[in-house]
Design a protein around this nucleic acid. Structure first.
Length: 939
RNA sequence: GGGUGUAUAGCUCAGUUGGUUAGAGCGCUACGUUCACAUCGCAGAGGUCCGUGGUUCGAGUCCACGUACACCCACCA
């Protein structure tokens, strides 16, 4: 019923949102019995895996199981493992970059399977400025502004927009298969977070780290708010650069419109050119709107090398000028208003926007003869608001700041104290931020980002946390006359709240613990904090990562997370940023629907490395769709060929191939586990793919068709493969597991693969061995198995190669002679495999030297391979080929000999290396000899 | 002006303490058989690991310099 409903809805509306809605319906109506219903046998498995048909249902069933919530997980879950989802901005929809959350899902699923109380906590960020700007843009399309709407109505509009945005985002996160604990979902602007924000503000205020003061801020006249230093973006712009006569001096500027109030002329104290002028000297000079009195100021901020080494200052509209004015107690005057128009000080230009006024001012100065020269093509950087695009006009405003240099009394955590700090210790926020990273209590992956973090801290100035927009957490401060109350709404009448709102990052900065119930001392907070990993893009390290460290160490006396894993940005296949204007955006939902979510996840993970940007093409996603299908068909074969589909506990190795695949399985398990523990996700997935596709499918399954009776190993290996793959590609593995476990004997149905135990590293799956001796075969036995199997594979490939080189028809069976002293026994034992896998009709294995005539030949390790061709051998081609092989071998022999002749190599290199090279040398010589004799046979 | 990253096969990229003849996927060439899979199988071609110098018995890997590209930070009026 659910599916029908969903499909009809899609057809009717053609929209993604509707489809998501149907998903929710599924969740309620269908999930409870979906996985306990009809038993599917493998025969019902379609030929091709169809992600579309199963993904939504699987997700709904996972969600209904409650296992996303660590409180519901089975077994002893005493060890917590926590990741806070970096809350996506509620500005619309997720893009492909968000699909990188896959990294977190892999880690969470891995740790959940390992028996930890895995918590992945979701939520969204209200992104004050970005959302505010977005809604203002939408209003503009309706011909409205926030000002003619009013604060209340405007916030309503924003909230409606957010609600829609959150719905879309949450559907997208589900579509990606993310195992988030929705029961703990949070929002940076909901009531519990508002309480945390107010508490945080109050605590910092009480510690005197939050203060209010007049400073030059980055004012955006369009949005009519200021933004923090980190929200600026600098873009190159070409403008005329003017040189004006200012009394006896020549001063330069690109901004004549700020010069009305300039009455100070500043020069470096050591500048010899101006030694006749003393600090404080005054002089009369003609200026834009008539004569003024100017004062000489000596300050080291002036660069004598630049231009004339003299400048006038505009303290109200330039940060560095403001500082100079502060140092010398100079007047500051506002010239431009908060909407970007000139004030009455500009005289006849008052009220004009600056772009309009600029040329007119220059014209006037020109007439007065005060323009010395104009450089038309001056290139400089201007600051724009990166969130909304407006050109920044520095202004002096009264703002709230966090003092990052002022010492405060550090309060240590009871549960997870920061090493190296003591309660009551006087220390600044900057120092704490540096300490937790230098002491290794927070580590970055990759490490190099620590340097970037430190350099940011070194240059960090007080953090301006107030914004003049309407959307966000309102500054929790109330005024009545001289009285001021912070944190809680005061009793009584006549109180007015500060109209400003807080910087978004103030609430994002407390995300890891505000989501766990802080400021209450909750069980969640005690159990799940600090979180284990913060996984995010490197572009957000300053905005968020650093601020979380700042606020968490202050509020809790603990670190917010142990490891910061930074992924790269996702770009298009040519390495360009994805953008609407380039029309190269890949929508995660589009490709997930086209190729399956697992394919998208794998394409993002494989071949990408932390901190490195990632170029993604649809072709790549397609390739991993193919892998999913391969895995599907592996399962289809195994589940179809075995007599009873069941979960097996132990296996018996009867043949070389059995021992080989089981030992490989053990190796891969250990290796993949280790790689996941050390964040080498790409390498882990690659190794799994090579094992699954190469070793298992291409070799072992083909062998199983010949050797037969391998039900236990096939089932065991399939189960293990599914388990190891599950964190990466949860849907296809769960879907196969459903059929696997459902096909098992009644009562043996195991729950979701999602909560299947992760196999122990190092433990051998080989529980019984018909060969006797140790079950695992021991280390040496394992090595021999690997070596023998490798040789067997090489021989088979060599025969196939000879067939191919000599254009032997694929269906034709051939006559082969293998000559080997060392491997004859093994090859004889594996005769059946050589027959089957190389399509050999008649196989002779000899330890004596025989030279079959009329055949193509080659040498593989210690074995000579002859393929009889009954008069079909092209003697010339065969000779050429052998000569080629021989040349190659001789070149290699010579290279190896150089090494062995090097006495220093023999004495300095480790014995292990020397021995292996000696062995290789001997083998090469043997190979050369054999090739020579084969060649001689042709002569 | 500081700082970081990248440069490996036609394309996109792995390569974790330096160690036998450097890997994968896609693409390319040839051939396709017994029913897991043509979203496939089999075999193959394809690389001066950006350049120069250095350290070392040994360098894609470490160091220095250079070149090209990308990015971050910065109040030069």
């Amino acid at each position: 019923m659910c599916e029908t409903l969903g499909k009809e809805a899609i057809i009717a509306e053609g929209g993604r949102a509707v489809k998501g809605d149907s998903l929710r319906v599924c969740l309620v109506m269908e999930a409870p019995n979906r996985y306990t219903g009809a038993i599917m046998s493998s025969e019902e498995m379609p030929k091709a895996y169809d992600p579309q048909a199963v993904e939504d249902g699987i997700y709904a069933a996972w969600e209904a199981s409650g296992f996303f919530n660590p409180d519901n997980l089975p077994g002893d879950r005493s060890t917590p493992y926590t990741i806070s989802l970096p809350p996506p901005n509620t500005t619309g929809t997720l893009h492909l970059g968000h699909a990188m959350y896959t990294v977190q899902d892999i880690l969470i699923r891995f740790e959940r399977m390992r028996g930890k109380a895995a918590l992945w906590l979701p939520g969204t960020d209200h992104a004050a400025i970005a959302t505010n700007a977005k809604v203002e843009r939408l209003l503009k399309e309706e011909g409205l502004t926030r000002h003619n709407l009013g604060r209340e109505k405007f916030v309503e509009r924003v909230n409606a927009f957010i609600k829609q945005s959150q719905g879309t985002i949450n559907r997208q996160l589900r579509k990606m298969g993310f195992s988030l604990d929705w029961s703990r979902e949070a929002y940076t602007l909901d009531e519990p977070r508002n309480r945390a924000v107010r508490e945080m503000f109050k605590r910092m205020y009480d510690a005197k780290l939050i203060y209010r003061g007049h400073r030059v801020v980055n004012w955006d006249p369009n949005l009519r708010t200021n933004v923090s230093d980190d929200e600026l973006e600098h873009v190159e712009k070409q403008d005329p650069f003017y040189w004006f006569q200012y009394g006896p001096f020549v001063i330069g500027t690109v901004r004549p419109e700020t010069k009305f109030g300039d009455k100070y002329v500043v020069m470096h104290p050591e500048d010899g050119r101006y030694k006749d002028y003393q600090h404080g000297d005054t002089f009369e000079c003609e200026w834009i709107n008539g004569p003024i009195t100017a004062t000489v100021i000596k300050d080291e901020a002036v660069d004598p090398e630049f231009g004339s080494g003299v400048m006038t200052i505009t303290p109200w509209h330039t940060a560095i000028d403001f500082e100079i004015a502060e140092r010398h107690g100079l007047d500051k005057e506002q010239v431009i208003d908060f909407e970007g128009n000139l004030l009455p000080i500009a005289g006849e230009f008052a009220g004009m926007p600056i772009e309009e006024a600029r040329p007119k001012i220059v014209e006037k100065l020109q007439k007065k003869g005060l323009v010395v020269k104009v450089e038309e093509e001056y290139v400089h950087n201007i600051a724009i608001n990166s969130r909304a695009g407006g050109i920044i006009e520095p202004q002096v405003r009264e703002q709230w700041f966090i003092d990052v240099n002022k010492p405060f009394a550090f309060v240590q955590s009871k549960h997870h104290p920061i090493e190296g700090l003591k309660s009551g210790q006087e220390i600044s926020l900057k120092e704490v931020m540096r300490h937790v990273v230098t002491s290794g209590q927070i580590t970055f992956v990759p490490e190099r980002f620590e340097k970037i973090y430190f350099s940011w801290i070194d240059n960090l100035r007080d953090w301006n946390i107030s914004r003049q927009i309407w959307f966000g957490h309102q500054v929790p401060v109330w005024y009545k006359g001289e009285d001021i109350v912070v944190g809680e709404t005061p009793e009584g009448d006549g109180w007015e709240q500060d109209p400003d709102v807080l910087d978004t990052w103030f609430s994002s900065g407390i995300w890891t613990f505000s989501t766990l119930g802080w400021p209450d001392d909750t069980a969640d907070l005690k159990r799940f904090h600090p979180t284990d990993v913060l996984e995010t893009g490197y572009d957000i390290i300053f905005f968020w990562v650093a601020r979380m460290i700042l606020m968490t160490t202050f509020a809790l006396g603990e670190v917010p997370f142990r490891t910061v894993y930074l992924h790269g940005l996702v770009r298009d296949e040519q390495g360009r940023k994805m953008s609407k204007s380039l029309d190269n955006i890949i929508d995660p939902l589009d490709v997930a629907e086209k190729y399956g979510t697992d394919a998208v996840r794998l394409a993002l993970i494989i071949g990408s490395t932390p901190g490195q940007d990632k170029n993604l093409s649809e072709q790549k996603i397609e390739a991993y769709r193919n892998f999913g299908n391969k895995l599907w068909n592996i399962a289809r074969f195994v589940l179809g060929v075995v007599e009873v589909v069941e979960v097996v506990e132990g296996v018996e190795a009867r043949t070389l191939a059995d021992r080989w695949i089981l030992s490989r399985l053990g190796e891969v398990t250990t290796s993949v586990t280790k790689k996941l523990e050390t964040f080498q996700l790409s390498s882990a997935a690659e190794e799994l793919r090579d094992f699954t596709w190469g070793d298992f499918a291409d070799w072992y399954l083909e062998i199983a068709k010949i050797e037969k009776d391998k039900d236990d190993i096939l089932l065991f290996a399939l189960e293990r493969i599914l388990v190891l793959w599950h964190p990466f590609i949860p849907f296809v593995t769960e879907e196969i597991w459903k059929r696997f476990s459902a096909g098992s004997r009644a009562g043996e149905t195991r729950s979701f693969l999602m909560v299947h135990d992760w196999p122990e590293s190092g433990a051998s799956p080989l529980l019984f061995s018909s060969e006797g001796g140790s079950a695992s075969g021991g280390k040496e036995g394992k090595g021999v198995v690997r070596e023998q199997m490798q040789h067997l594979q090489d021989v088979i490939v060599a025969i196939r190669n000879l067939r191919s080189e000599n254009n032997v028809e694929a269906r034709k069976k051939v006559v082969v002679t293998l000559v080997s002293q060392e491997a004859a026994k093994m090859l004889d034992e594996q005769k059946a495999l050589i027959h089957g896998l190389a399509r050999v009709e008649s196989l002779t294995i000899s330890s004596e030297k025989v030279k079959p005539g009329d055949s193509a030949s080659t040498v593989v390790g210690t074995t000579e391979v002859y393929l009889s061709l009954e008069g079909l051998v092209d003697m010339d081609a065969e000779r050429d080929r052998l000569v080629g092989e021989l040349e190659e071998a001789r070149t290699f022999e010579a290279k190896t000999k150089v090494k062995l002749d090097n006495k220093e190599f023999i004495s300095y290199a480790p014995t292990k290396i020397v021995e292996s090279i000696k062995e290789t040398y001997a083998q090469t010589q043997e190979r050369i000899q054999k090739l020579e004799s084969q060649l001689a046979r042709l002569a």
